[in-house]
Every structure is written in structure tokens, then in C-alpha cells.
Computed example of a mutant assay.
Amino acid sequence: MDPSGDEVDADVVEFAHQLFDLARDGETERLGAYVEAGVPVELTDADGNTLLMLAAYHGHAATVQDLVKRGADVNRLNDRGQSPLAGAVFKGEDLVVSVLIGAGADPDAGQPSARATARMFGKPGLFD
């Protein structure tokens, strides 16, 4: 059941998991086709991670760029208050960091912020 008490269709849940896997795996064209067909670009998993967050965290710059082009919010935080940019900094995904900054990601959003994460990992000048 979902929080409203309604039954959740198992096929819908499985489809959503497949979409999150496409983001994690960097399947840009397939994921983009689903978004084009009506899947919300801001779809979130049970932890509040968007498709963009999952693509960024797993280092898929092309997928991140495509989701941004389709309207994904580069500053949307997950349920733990983490931003896609902070996740990319944490994972050392420099190309993803560059794409997100180019798309207007805020290095001070979230907890810890991308700026604080960069300091923790010895990259204090990353956002100067």
C-alpha cells in the first residue's frame, strides 16, 4: 500500500525500479524515451532520489545532461538532504560536477553541501 492506503500495482513498482536502473546504468537514450513518453523527469525512489541524482551519483554525465535538458531540477534534494552535485563530488565524478555546475547547480545546497563535501575530500577550491 502507498501512504494514502491505496493498493500499489506490482507491475508499476517493477517498472519504476527498471527506470531507476536505467538512470544508474547511464542508459541515456532508453531513459530519455520514457521521459519523452510521459514518465515524470522528477520521478523519485523510496529514498527521494531522482533519476538525475542516481545518474549523477553513478557518474553518467551524458544521462545527467539529457535529464537536465528535459527539465530535471539540478538542486532537488533527496530525503537525506543530499544534492546531486554533492553526490557527484563525493564519488569523484568530475565530468558530472562540470555538467551540473554548467546547469546552475548550487554548491551550497543540501547537507552536507557539495562545497563542504569538496573540502572533506581535499578539493577546497573546486567551487571558487
Rank of each mutant, 00 (worst) to 15 (best):
G48C: 10
H60D: 07
V89H: 03
A61M: 05
V74T: 13
P84T: 05
V74F: 08
A55I: 01
A56P: 02
V68Y: 00
A56I: 01
G59N: 09
P84F: 01
L52N: 05
T63E: 09
G92Q: 12
G87Q: 07
V64H: 05
Y57P: 00
H58K: 14
N78I: 09
H60M: 09
D66F: 00
G59V: 08
L85Y: 06
A86C: 11
P84S: 11
Q65H: 08
A88P: 04
T50H: 04
K69C: 10
V89S: 07
A86L: 06
M53R: 08
D79L: 15
A88Y: 01
R70S: 09
H60V: 10
K69S: 15
A72W: 02
Q82G: 07
T63F: 00
D73P: 08
G92P: 08
H60R: 10
L67K: 00
V74W: 00
K91D: 03
A86F: 09
G48H: 08
G59R: 01
G48T: 06
Y57K: 12
M53D: 01
Y57E: 13
D73Q: 14
L52H: 07
A61D: 08
R80D: 14
A61V: 06
R76E: 14
G87W: 02
L85E: 04
F90A: 13
G59S: 13
D66L: 11
T63W: 00
A62V: 04
F90C: 11
P84Q: 10
L51V: 06
R76D: 05
Q82R: 15
G48E: 08
T50C: 09
N78V: 08
F90H: 14
L51F: 07
G92M: 12
Q65L: 07
D66G: 01
H60S: 11
R80A: 15
R80F: 14
V74D: 01
A62I: 03
A88I: 05
M53N: 03
G87A: 13
R76T: 07
H58L: 07
R70V: 03
L51N: 03
A88F: 01
A72L: 08
V89A: 07
Y57F: 13
N49A: 09
G59K: 02
G81P: 11
G71M: 13
F90G: 02
R80N: 13
V64Y: 02
N75S: 14
N49F: 02
N78W: 07
D73H: 11
T63Y: 05
V68K: 04
L77V: 11
H60F: 04
V89K: 03
R76S: 10
G48D: 08
M53Y: 15
D73C: 09
Y57L: 12
G87E: 03
G87T: 00
M53W: 15
G92D: 12
A55F: 04
A56V: 07
A88H: 06
F90E: 14
G71E: 11
T50Q: 09
N49T: 02
N75Y: 11
A61G: 09
A56T: 07
Q65A: 15
L54F: 00
T50L: 05
V64W: 02
A86M: 11
A55K: 00
V68H: 04
D79V: 01
K69Q: 15
R80V: 07
